[in-house]
């Protein structure tokens, strides 16, 4: 599928209150356009509505107001054109690594031989050769997330949505996973929305970084990241990178303080 252009128009989300508590505004009306092949990272303190925004784009949640358009067509429900990788490990435990990656292809009714070919190519891309027939339980967290990324990409979605996919991984593994995903994106291009609360990650991966305010969330800063590609982990110590990091650290700190005060 060709990479998609995403338009978010006045999207907000208010969760109705429960057990005496008032309604919660998770997301203020938000406008955003993401160009095809852009790699957008969304940075913000926890509870600011990042997941809510991503779930609305995925079609897993309905906005209270506004609409989401993918290539001009409104999003109403989840679909194969919007692949998603979750923070929690969501591989199907009864399927092997290869079967997990083929899940969406089977759903499309693709011929067995073609499925095999695509699965093999993604197994290679995420470095899981030799693990095709393993059960998810037998994999480390990093390997599970690589499988999840392969499973989403194998479907060839117009946009890839990632919700803190490396959030539960240790630092070293996270660094390797960042390079792996970025490498795939540099070679194949794809529209990507990547949610994180890690500042370095949000710079390293992005062609454009959005910072969200503390709850109720809104986009308070839209920062293009003009670092050259292909990127290498050593870039994280360059002066340009450090300057961006200092800038975002200030922005995030202000929000974190606000978020802490609100609790």
């Amino acid at each position: 599928m060709t990479a998609g252009t995403l338009t978010i128009r006045g999207v907000s989300r208010v969760f109705p209150g429960s057990r005496g508590a008032g309604p919660v505004t998770a997301l203020q009306p938000t406008d955003l356009t993401i160009a095809a092949n852009d790699f957008i990272t969304i940075l913000g303190p926890s509870g600011c509505g990042k997941s809510t925004l991503l779930r609305i784009v995925a079609g897993l949640d309905q906005p209270t107001s506004g609409e989401v358009l993918l290539n001009g067509r409104p999003v109403t429900r989840p679909g194969a054109d919007r692949g998603m990788v979750f923070q929690s490990y969501t591989l199907f435990p009864w399927l092997t690594v290869a079967e997990n990656i083929a899940f969406g292809l089977r759903e499309k009714g693709m011929a067995e031989a073609e499925q095999k070919e695509i699965v093999a190519s993604y197994i290679a891309k995420v470095g899981l050769r030799g693990f095709e027939n393993h059960w998810p339980k037998q994999l480390s967290g990093g390997m599970q997330q690589r499988t999840a990324i392969a499973r989403a990409l194998a479907n060839d979605p117009a946009i890839l949505l990632l919700d803190e996919p490396f959030g539960a991984l240790d630092n070293q593994t996270r660094g390797l996973m960042q390079e792996l995903l970025l490498g795939i994106w540099e070679r194949e291009k794809k529209t990507v929305m990547f949610v994180t609360h890690d500042i370095e990650e949000s710079i390293f991966m992005a062609s454009r970084c959005l910072v969200m305010s503390a709850r109720p969330g809104r986009i308070k800063l839209d920062l293009p990241i003009d670092l050259p590609h292909p990127r290498h982990y050593r870039m994280k110590t360059s002066p340009e990178f450090s300057a961006l990091k200092a800038r975002l650290t200030e922005e995030i700190r202000a929000e974190a303080v606000l978020a802490a005060e609100a609790h």
């Binding site: 979750f86 969501t90 199907f92 899940f103 759903e107």
Partner: peptide, 27 residues
């Protein structure tokens, strides 16, 4: 729930979620 949602984002319909997630997972 998260597995059901994962299946939806991979293109499963409502029947597909029952057939390919709920049944094998609970077998």
């Amino acid at each position: 729930r998260d597995l059901v949602e994962a299946a939806y984002t991979l293109g499963s319909g409502d029947g597909g979620v029952v057939r390919r997630v709920m049944i094998p997972m609970n077998a």
